[in-house]
Computed example of a mutant assay.
Amino acid sequence: MKSLRSITTVDTLSKNDFLTRFKRPEMPVKFEHLTDDWPARKKWSINYFKDVAGDRIVPLYDSQPSKNRKHQHAPAAQMPLTDYLDRLQAGENDLRLFFYNILQEVPELTQDFDYPDIGLPFFRKLPVLFMGGTGAKVQMHYDIDLADIFLCHFGGKKKVMLFPPDQTPLMYKVPFSFSSLFDVNYRTPDLEKYPALQYLEGYETDLNHGDILYIPPGWWHYIEYEELSFSMALRAFPRRPKNLATMLKNLLWTRSIEGLMRKTVGQAWNDRNEKRAVQNTHRYLAKKGLR
């Protein structure tokens, strides 16, 4: 890659400073002490989750791409949370808990955190939880709703790589999807097969227990669990007309077409889109005189 810069790290920020320095220019920032007074910072652990929600049946997702007519968001397994946490402690690193609505499923957990007074209109009905084991990875993607995201991290260390929306032409984006090609390795890229990656410019950081990472709307992110850990995402949906219109298009049109075509056409639809991801990216390189 051309460059990976460190994300700016602060202890905390006033509302005006955050809006001026990061929200308005849409730049990421990591807060190290914004959660200092949250009960979650002391309480959230494997044993605590077992005590509070161990009997809940949770949907789990693996790292394999969806094939044939399988819906891309279909869970790979379901089991009680206690059993899943036991598996994580035993070394499981493929199955992940993804976008689990703790307000709806485990309302007790919402007493353990606050919504930061940072100038964002957080959608308070959708705090969502993610979990993964040592070595788990999350495919490069951006969020369909173009939300401002506060990723609140607990447990062991996690690495996050971010790329702004203007890098999309270089990302091998799969048409009718919000992710990059599955087999693109952003940590050790194969530049012969995927030459566009050498021109990418992005950011990276480590997240430790209690850190919060602000991810601006539409930013690509790739996540590596260096240790068993869990994160909660607080979201503020778009207010700018352009982002709001794109969100509605993504939700009502793009996702619907993808689901319908995957269901009716099957693997041929997937193969077509993966082929076009490469063609579109390499066509962009040629247009820019880079290939």
Score class of each variant (00 low, 15 high):
158 K>F: 09
58 V>C: 09
232 M>F: 07
210 G>S: 08
115 Y>S: 08
131 M>Y: 01
91 G>W: 12
247 M>P: 07
79 M>R: 04
162 L>Q: 11
94 D>W: 03
273 N>V: 07
198 Q>G: 01
224 E>Y: 01
162 L>P: 13
93 N>C: 14
53 A>R: 07
202 G>M: 05
173 K>H: 15
179 S>P: 04
106 V>S: 13
24 R>P: 02
220 W>S: 08
42 K>T: 12
32 E>T: 15
30 K>T: 12
267 Q>T: 04
134 T>L: 00
128 V>S: 02
209 H>E: 08
213 L>M: 04
268 A>Y: 06
99 F>L: 14
237 F>G: 08
251 L>R: 05
203 Y>A: 00
130 F>V: 00
278 V>E: 13
284 Y>K: 04
291 R>D: 15
2 K>L: 10
268 A>I: 01
243 N>K: 08
175 P>E: 12
107 P>L: 03
273 N>A: 02
56 R>G: 03
236 A>P: 09
187 R>W: 14
26 E>I: 00
80 P>H: 09
248 L>V: 06
122 F>N: 04
55 D>Q: 13
40 A>D: 13
45 S>F: 03
172 Y>K: 02
183 D>M: 06
179 S>E: 15
46 I>D: 12
231 S>V: 00
169 P>G: 12
174 V>C: 08
253 W>Y: 03
168 T>P: 10
253 W>T: 06
230 F>Y: 02
274 E>D: 14
85 L>K: 08
144 I>Y: 01
189 P>W: 07
91 G>N: 12
112 D>T: 10
30 K>E: 10
256 S>C: 03
133 G>A: 02
15 K>P: 01
254 T>V: 11
48 Y>T: 09
218 G>C: 03
178 F>Y: 15
